[in-house]
Design a protein around this nucleic acid. Structure first.
Lengths: 131, 131, 131, 131
DNA sequence: GTGGTCTAGACCACC
DNA sequence: GTGGTCTAGACCACA
């Protein structure tokens, strides 16, 4: 899987990395049980500090996306990612809130906003088919 | 308008403040041309430093939400906020991306996600009616 | 003469006022010896504080654009504005410096920059003919 | 690159700093991709507070002159500064207006004014050759 | 009284 | 080490 980082972005690198891996799982490019590169090799591949990759992996593990075995290395959670809970929905809603209020101010109507979301969903799901 | 900050949150105060004000505009609690409190009075009201409030105001001004007026002080942009451009849509899409990919991993389907968005939209729009 | 102020500008009002009056003289709308409104009447006409107008007038007097007589009121300097000195040229050059360096960075060549200046000159001079 | 500030000047330090850096880019003393000192080191070098330097850097970033890079620190925009747009020309013209009207009042003719601009252009461009 | 600027010193997140 | 955020307190220009 290709990892694309933007070092000029305001978004921290460890977060970008997390998002990319989650995106890979969403698209089916990374399947449950599949191996991920070791901290060391990934770090050198994408040219970032070991600590940065480690921080990403720890957080992904924490949220149930991956498992870290001392010997087997890192794998995508073979049981799949924990499903959305009401707590997750609440947190999601909290993150959507500022995006939606700004969009309303900028005169995007509900349908236009939903279309943007829908397009993204479709982008991920069609890639998923191919994998 | 009531401002509610969470000083424990990881989200910087100046950003929370920006979001609250944008939300106020979205809900119609703050109308175009309406006065906002001065940097100093708002700062003392919500118990933060005046520089923090100033930073929020500067950024809101920068994005066209408010005007900083020599005589009248700070006002909501009377011409309304600049409408969504394709650049805005792109940036919005970029912010939605990780939310959607995580939701897919957690087995939320498109409809469930759109419902969350839709609920938020309706929350803002119904408040808007009352104002 | 019409005075147009922008209260949302970052440029202080007293400076805008100074510039407008100088522009009026440059265009020949205000001729040497001509009366200017009193501080009071101008202030009420354009809706600003007395002190603001006074500050502008004092500075214009200081630089030789106008004379302030206790009784006759305010008049455009009947002897004309003092001509450009080398000190003036130096100060002018100092103000042009950042405009030119930014233009170079933005890949405007010398001719393009001179054209902008030339257009402004012509704008002022043609208005002058009509007056 | 040598930075020269005038602490007595009415012009704010952060603006002087911005102008100096833009001038450095115009002269080719600072090349696209080149590193700029960190906020802290520059601040201590020129003897001002780090917030002052930070304000300058933020504004330069905002206008596309520099990038603030997570790893490399601060660099001159390697893609070059965004070219002049019509908006830029308009704003430039707005800033030139008072300079030109005052010069007309002081009986500088168009050619004399253009010569001042031209001299500055040549000063920047010849320094550019050497870099 | 307003916002604009500057200083000084602190903590944190990131790399 | 870096930049990002926040506080506290000060002075000034402006209206």
């Amino acid at each position: 899987m290709l990892i694309q980082l933007d070092f000029e972005s305001k978004e921290p690198i460890y977060l970008q990395l997390i998002h990319q891996i989650i995106e890979g799982i969403a698209k089916g490019q990374l399947k449950p049980g599949e191996d991920l590169p070791s901290v060391r090799s990934l770090a050198s591949d994408i040219g970032v500090n070991l600590h940065t990759v480690n921080k990403s992996y720890q957080q992904l593990k924490q949220e149930g996306f991956i498992l870290i075995h001392r010997q087997k290395g890192v794998v995508v959670n073979p049981e799949g990612v924990p499903s959305a809970t009401t707590a997750y929905i609440k947190q999601l809603s909290h993150k959507l809130r500022p995006l939606i209020s700004e969009s309303i101010c900028r005169e995007m109507d509900e349908q236009a906003f939903l279309n943007v979301c829908s397009d993204l969903y479709k982008e991920f799901m069609t890639e998923r088919q191919g994998n």
